[in-house]
Design a protein around this nucleic acid. Structure first.
Length: 592
RNA sequence: UCCUCAGUAGCUCAGUGGUAGAGCGUUUCCUUGGUAAGGAAGAGGUCGGCAGUUCAAUCCUGCUCUCAGGCUCCA
């Protein structure tokens, strides 16, 4: 992701606005304690610890004060201070958070500097504009209030964060707001209101979506796709239960490494049963159900497995974050010699999917373990081997990637596929792990050609992630206008007047018996109204029939979002449509 | 889990300390000819829930639930 250059005008403007905001807040809340106040992608924010909280109604007034400050032409001046002196000055102003920050900076031997503008000063490394007058008029606006933990840690105090938008010109600010508005229209929760993909019912529970008929179509089409791809790639399908005895999760290490994210256990007949948060332990048990020879490897076990994870309620968001989810899961058990090729095949499968959906904006994130955090299984040698292998494969695939320490699964390094959704938020679309640990923990073995027992390497992979997240992502990606193969309703037949209902009815029946998801609009609406309704519902194909069509046994075919019309024989239409569905084409992006 | 915002008809939203409003959608009837709203009538609401203040609360106060934006977490 691009970062604004620290010496650019824009960075200086945003950074300086953060100081101006803090100054304005201190004017109305003199006892405010300052936290962090950095520039960000769309502007800036500043964190405050306040005895009397700000309300959104205060924002216009704060913004006005900011403009007044800017008009004064306050000059930014830098000063460098020693540790003692800086702490002393901050202490005098009662800025405890800043003192903590000074201690952290000093520990890293950073130079301590402050910036002063007018009556305000702040611990800061800069840079800033020369004078507040250099901040263009109308280039910013205060955006929202939010809570934010001090230093981003749940353990710490909750501060109040004020977000501001800021750009180099007022036009850019306006443009950003318009774009954001458009993006909000594509939010899957918003589209869901009209398109009815899923429902979340209070009676059923938070984070436990009910899939309505429309959403289920998309889910099942994805599942069909995955099953075909996996079949051709030599996967075997399996099926496993949702609840499981405690012992299995001790073996896997989910207890205690993952217990916080699991639903509390059910007690029965003196034993404890958990809802599974992942499918891996079960697949391992399937591996273990028979003795394995190197001739059985690689063994690829696939399942659309439903898992339950206890997410905190504030984290739940439509279909994007839920508590019950169905994963496009599979585990590949292989020998060390096979691991590289298997991993490569898995990554290639991802790129095939992404090409199919026309997703271009993605990158890979390599998540590695971090020592001594207690978050990862303690097998340094195996970790080392896994990380070397996975890095090699990443290099070979050639898709750009970014390595992050400390983000691995507790049993192995991860390759995540990161995508940016329409709202600009980064999401993990799928996650894949290379696991040298679990084979050993579960006592999985195979007899190799040397007639000795060996432990297989396990690759966890889920290219389509979970139905919940992936469908949400696709709804936003397509803006609710799906290609024919995915669309809940593929065709609507519209007679130009009721006199042609009978002919239209016949066409609709034929399509239906060819397994096309089709509907006849024989309502009493005017013809224009019917066209509009079909467009509003974003149905990919409409068929218009009237006198001409009836006479020639033809249909007039029109795509969603297009004014082009084509009149062709009905049989020819069915053939074309079936081919498009079978090949999973998108008429907007594929040449036909 | 916490911070801020918001909950009025299926949806989008007005509104008032004194019997609840619009548009769209829906239902019924009339109408029907070629590309984004034909007409008429009707149904539809414990104004999120509980408690308090008041002669009277959808409106004011408190609590609670849900939702949205953050933070944290993450598929």
């Amino acid at each position: 992701m691009e970062k604004t250059d620290i010496n650019s005008d824009l960075y200086k403007i945003r950074h300086s606005l953060a100081h101006v905001l803090a100054q304005a807040v201190l004017e109305i809340r003199p006892d405010a304690k300052l936290g962090f106040g950095p520039p960000i992608d769309s502007g800036f924010y500043y964190d405050f610890d306040l005895t009397e909280p700000l309300s959104t109604e205060d924002l216009p007034m704060l913004e006005k004060r900011m403009r007044q400050i800017i008009k004064k032409g306050q000059v930014f001046e830098r000063e460098e201070l020693g540790h003692e002196e800086m702490v002393e000055r901050l202490d005098k102003d009662n800025q405890g958070y800043k003192i903590e920050q000074v201690e952290d900076l000093s520990a890293q031997n950073e130079i301590l500097s402050l910036y002063r503008n007018g009556p305000f000063w702040d611990l800061c490394e800069g840079p800033h504009v020369d004078s507040t007058r250099d901040i263009p008029k109308n280039c910013f606006s205060l955006d929202s209030l939010a809570g934010a933990y001090w230093k981003g840690s749940e353990e710490n105090n909750m501060m109040q964060r004020v977000y501001g938008l800021a750009f180099e010109t007022g036009d850019e600010l306006k443009e950003f707001k318009e774009k954001r508005q458009l993006a909000m229209e594509r939010d899957h929760r918003k589209l869901n209101i009209k398109q009815h993909y899923y429902a979340i019912s209070e009676e059923v529970g938070k984070g436990l979506p009910l899939w309505l008929p429309n959403g289920t179509v998309i889910r099942e089409e994805l599942e069909k796709l995955a099953k075909e791809k996996e079949f051709l790639a030599g996967y075997k399908r399996v099926s496993t239960p949702h609840i499981t005895r405690e012992e299995l999760f001790h073996t896997s290490g989910h207890l205690p490494f993952y217990e916080d994210s699991m639903f509390p256990p059910m007690e029965m007949d003196g034993e404890r049963l958990f809802l599974k948060p992942m499918n891996c332990p079960h697949h391992h048990m399937i591996y273990k159900a028979e003795p394995r020879s190197y001739r059985d490897l690689p063994l690829r076990l696939a399942e659309y497995g439903t898992c339950y994870r206890y997410e905190q309620s504030g984290e739940l968001a439509g279909l994007l974050r839920v508590r019950g989810m169905t994963m496009n899961d599979a585990h590949i058990y292989c020998s060390p010699e096979q691991a590289k090729e298997e991993l490569l095949n898995v990554l290639n499968l991802h790129t095939q999917y992404y090409e199919l959906f026309g997703l271009k904006d993605f990158w890979m994130r390599l998540s590695l373990a971090e020592k001594d955090t207690g978050k990862f299984v303690d097998e340094p040698e195996l970790w080392q081997k896994a990380e070397t292998l996975i890095t090699e494969v990443m290099e070979e695939v050639g898709v750009p990637y970014e390595a992050v320490r400390g983000e691995a699964a507790f049993y192995g390094p991860k390759i995540d596929f990161q995508v940016t959704n329409v709202i600009g938020r980064e999401e993990t679309a799928s996650t894949n792990q290379l696991d040298l640990v679990m084979g050993k923990r579960f006592g999985l073995t195979y007899i190799a050609s040397d007639n000795q027992e060996h432990t297989p390497i396990i690759i966890h992979r889920a290219p389509l992630g979970t139905h919940e997240r992936f469908v949400a992502f696709l709804i936003e990606h397509y803006g609710g206008a799906f290609p024919t193969w995915l669309a809940p309703l593929q065709v609507r037949v519209i007679p130009v007047a009721s006199a042609f209902n009978e002919y239209a009815h016949g066409l609709n029946d034929s399509l239906f018996s060819s397994f096309v998801r089709t509907e006849l609009d024989d309502s009493h609406d005017s013809f224009s109204k019917k066209i509009r309704s079909a467009a509003v519902a974003k149905i990919p194909n409409i068929l218009i029939v009237g006198e001409n069509e009836q006479a020639g046994q033809t249909v007039t075919w029109q795509r969603y979002g297009s004014k082009d019309r084509k009149t062709l024989a009905f049989d020819a239409f069915i053939e074309l449509l079936q081919e498009e569905i079978l090949k999973r084409q998108d008429w907007r992006t594929d040449d036909q």
